[in-house]
């Protein structure tokens, strides 16, 4: 039986199709919710590091450390740290939120550093209070740098979710363990393909979102750089 016959047979089963749709939906939830939560957390922590330079070193060390912990290890220790059940999907959400935040803290700090001091000074001079200045001036200007980090985090999350299948919560990852146990290529290939497509679609959406959020960048883009003499 060729691979394509096998694939056709696999996809013709309504049960299998239902499983694919269900796991895909779960995969989106498990990857994207932590992405959003992680971004918020990273911005909060970044703001802390930006306004309180002493915290900066600690923040960077901790985020590096979190990022160093292997995903499977984090998945299995989180229940004991926060008291959830081993098979609860919250574990994956918490772990991936931490990864996302750990990955984004440095870009947030770098992006905030890159905001021209003159802009901050003029905002202050016009009477912005620090919190409002941060939300309406510094943060928007940090979006272009931040966006690059968010795209990496989204791809990484989408690919990591499937590791959760080893602790029973894994979105499309369940198709991999399924295929492995039944020595069956089709679910694995379908799982890989859908993961890649999902990563691509989310990436495109993020690119669009970045364009919408930073209209000034687009306005600046068409102006051709001076031709070097």
């Amino acid at each position: 039986m060729s691979f394509f016959d096998e694939l056709g047979q696999y996809l013709s089963s309504a049960n299998n199709r239902e499983q694919i749709v269900d796991t895909l939906a779960e995969h989106c939830y498990l990857a994207l919710l932590p992405l959003v939560l992680g971004i918020v957390l990273a911005i909060l922590v970044g703001w802390l590091g930006n306004t309180w330079p002493r915290a900066r070193g600690v923040i960077l060390v901790v985020s590096n450390l979190v990022y160093t912990v292997p995903s499977l290890a984090l998945f299995v220790v989180i229940p004991s740290l926060i008291g959830t059940k081993m098979l609860d999907s919250i574990n994956v959400v918490v772990a991936l939120t931490l990864y996302t935040a750990a990955l984004l803290v440095r870009p947030v700090l770098d992006a905030l550093d890159a905001v021209p001091p003159a802009v901050i000074a003029s905002a202050t001079a016009m009477g912005y209070r620090p919190a409002r200045r941060f939300l309406t001036v510094e943060l928007p200007l940090a979006v272009p740098v931040l966006a690059a980090g968010v795209r990496v985090a989204s791809v990484s999350n989408i690919s990591l979710v499937s590791v959760g299948a080893l602790i029973g919560v894994g979105g499309l990852g369940v198709l991999f363990t399924d295929g492995f146990q039944r020595e069956y290529f089709s679910p694995i290939v379908v799982g890989i393909a859908l993961t890649l497509v999902l990563a691509l679609v989310v990436d495109l959406l993020l690119v669009l979102l970045r364009r919408v959020l930073t209209p000034w960048d687009r306005a600046a883009a068409p102006v051709k750089e001076e031709v070097p003499a």
Binding site: S156, S162, F176, F185, G191, L196
Partner: peptide, 16 residues
């Protein structure tokens, strides 16, 4: 693209 490849999927696929 390679970064987006799910580890577990890749390893189970290669094992089969």
């Amino acid at each position: 693209v390679i970064r987006a490849l799910p580890t577990l999927g890749l390893v189970t696929f290669l094992f089969l």
